[in-house]
Design a protein around this nucleic acid. Structure first.
Lengths: 213, 213
DNA sequence: ACCATTTATGTCACTGAGTGGCATAAGCCT
DNA sequence: AGGCTTATGCCACTCAGTGACATAAATGGT
């Protein structure tokens, strides 16, 4: 790797770390890009050559994970598993690779906490999620037929994976000392709860039901 | 209803219709707020007293639907149905009420088409979806116990409902002459496909599998 | 070690979204 | 009609994001 590339990557990492730290401490809206760039000693123009938006810099950990997921998906084989099981294992593999990066878990937890209390970050995050989902669907359709482009099942399967992941993440990021293995376990649990969620029956007569005595 | 309120509502509707028309014709980014306000003969300041953002004005049809959904949910009764079935019927009821509004279907279709090709709109849309989901979850937990705040199933059930709705909407908005009854049918179909999506098994050996001959 | 080429960075000026403050106008009530 | 409330308009401002162009730094060949 050339010196140029290393410098660029280092600037990127510094921006991410500084942004996460400042946003967490003073709030997303409490930090202007000028201040962030000042702290990293980089021009605003350079910032926007590295990230597409103010939100993007704080979403980098999540983006990295899903990029790995897509890469892993290219080489996944069914092996008699359910589509959802295959996706689960692919995501777990991506998780394992992402977690090799020093300090990834901490960054991911900060990013998630920020997204929770910053509408615009949550929005960007979910839009990114959607485009990743589409890409994943393209890969799945290309590599396995899966009943043509009108079959609703593959799309629903990925959405269920994503829903389970968000659920797992919500619990994990709030826990003290977030650890990748714990996130993996939570993801498994959330996915295992899907069939029960489908058939869950609420108690008869809600507490404030219209015709309760 | 007072004259003041009627005027305010009329301005709101005009803004929505004009925005949808202009955004569709010239693109979301191709229309500045100044131009939109000029066309409706309203100051920019007034625009932001009616809508929180440029994106919001085009998302109004969807917001109205989900607001109705939450209202319906307050008076829904289980009646021996699955939670997901109850949510489905509640959403169908909201849909029916929303569709009474003259031209709602057309606005909804335009709004969806715009969100498809405008990242920032998609992001806002999905964030709004998430906050609605949370509110719905609050209502469900308040009215029916549903196994405490740590039970993952209710959350997953709503996410499945939303996933099915998005899927139904995607097919519906692209169809010629979008009609509310058709959207309802598509929603039923998408929800009915959920169990199959959960157990779908891909063909063995992907087309570009790593170890294919 | 030097120079030409390529590529990253910085500077400046600009557009457009969104906000606060305050004056004015429009609707409301008796 | 006239005082009261509330919506609207206007002005100046902050800040995210972009385009054009100059400058600096890395690379590769000699």
């Amino acid at each position: 790797m050339t010196l140029r590339e290393r410098k660029k990557l280092r600037t990127r990492q510094t921006l991410i770390d500084t942004a996460l730290e400042q946003f967490t401490r003073r709030g997303f809206d409490g930090v202007t890009l000028d201040e962030l760039c000042e702290a990293v000693e980089v021009s605003k123009r350079t910032f926007f050559r590295t990230f597409a938006s103010k939100e993007d810099v704080a979403m980098a950990p999540a983006q990295d994970l899903w990029t790995l997921f897509l890469a892993e998906l290219e080489s996944a084989v069914p092996g008699g598993r359910t589509l959802l099981e295959m996706e689960r294992d692919t995501l777990l593999a991506a998780l394992e690779r992402a977690a090799r990066e020093e300090g990834w878990a901490g960054r991911m937890a900060l990013a998630h906490a920020l997204a929770q209390r910053t509408p615009s970050m949550d929005g960007h995050n979910r839009h990114f999620c959607e485009s990743t989902t589409r890409s994943a669907l393209d890969v799945l359709r290309r590599r396995f037929g899966l009943g043509g482009p009108d079959d609703p099942r593959p799309r629903l399967a990925i959405d269920m994976l994503v829903a389970a992941f968000h659920l797992a993440m919500a619990g994990w990021a709030d826990s003290p000392e977030p650890d990748p293995a714990d996130l993996a376990a939570r993801l498994r649990d959330a996915l295992a709860a899907l069939p029960a969620a489908l058939t869950l029956v609420p108690d008869e007569g809600g507490a404030a039901g219209v015709s309760s005595p």
